[in-house]
């Protein structure tokens, strides 16, 4: 007896007739806390539905939050200094620049040689046991044969060649200072290249000078031949010899100096 009215009321609550939106599932209860969905339904000869609430689609405004994305959160949390520090400074990309004192090649991927930190998290090492110093018996297990390591184990000794390391450090070492050996080789190579370039330029300049002088000489020659009394005689009878031209140029120079 007690269950019946409860069931009826439940059915009424979820009935599609009472739902403001017929298309929506009546199973999902929607509470109208604003009272804006109030409607009066009158039946009879002239059935009508009158919305008594002010607006049908009005919803509660979202709650005001003090801290939103509208504020500069970096300034709000006092991280501007850290931001400027991290963004303004040029950080080198490699891990070795962060850990310069660490030996070995650390810039390569840790996944390659199975030395990644991620693998330590994924497969934690066995721990919890107390670490004890080794006794003489245990140390005897570390007795080694004299001689160098076999070839296949020498990979760790290889030092990676750094590319263009000294590209911008040409003037790091002053002429009077002692230069490290490896730098010496590089500097000597660069010096050679520079010298070759210089030489080439010098040669070019030298050639230019030669040409200019030649042209000048010819010009002078022409000039002198025009003014000299011999010119009239020589003009008819071919060019003068090498010695003649030299003499004329000499004369010319004398004239010009006078």
């Amino acid at each position: 007896m007690m269950a019946d009215p409860f069931r009826i009321s439940k059915v009424e609550q979820y009935s599609p007739k009472s739902s403001p939106r017929g298309s929506r599932s009546p199973v999902v209860p929607r509470q109208d806390s604003t009272g804006t969905l109030k409607a009066t339904i009158s039946l009879g000869k002239n059935p009508s539905i009158v919305h008594t609430g002010p607006f049908y689609l009005i919803k509660e405004a979202p709650g005001e939050s003090e801290l939103t994305g509208a504020t500069n959160l970096m300034a709000h949390y006092g991280l501007e200094h850290s931001y400027n520090k991290s963004s303004g400074r040029k950080v080198k990309d490699t891990l070795s620049s962060f850990l310069p004192n660490l030996p070995g090649q650390i810039d390569s991927s840790g996944y390659q040689d199975n030395s990644s930190l991620r693998s330590v998290i994924d497969k934690p090492p066995i721990g919890g046991k107390e670490l004890m110093m080794l006794n003489s018996m245990q140390l005897s297990g570390f007795r080694l044969h004299p001689g160098p390591l076999p070839e296949q184990y020498r990979v760790f000794n290889q030092v990676p060649q750094k590319k263009n390391k000294h590209k911008h450090k040409r003037h790091k070492y002053k002429p009077g200072e002692a230069v490290p050996h490896h730098m010496e080789v590089v500097t000597s190579q660069t010096d050679l290249a520079l010298a070759a370039e210089k030489k080439h330029k010098k040669q070019k300049r030298h050639d230019d000078d030669k040409e200019r002088r030649k042209r000048k000489k010819e010009k002078k020659k022409k000039k002198s031949s025009k003014h000299s009394p011999e010119h009239a005689a020589a003009s008819g009878g071919g060019g003068s010899g090498g010695g003649g031209s030299g003499a004329s140029s000499q004369n010319n120079s004398q004239i010009s100096t006078q």
């Binding site: 991290s86 950080v91 490699t94 962060f98 930190l117 991620r118």
Partner: peptide, 22 residues
Amino acid sequence: FDYIDSGRNPQLYTKDCMEKAM
């Protein structure tokens, strides 16, 4: 750890994080 495992400077993580947040 991903930065370190791939041979990158971990300071770049801070930088990237800051820039992303900004």
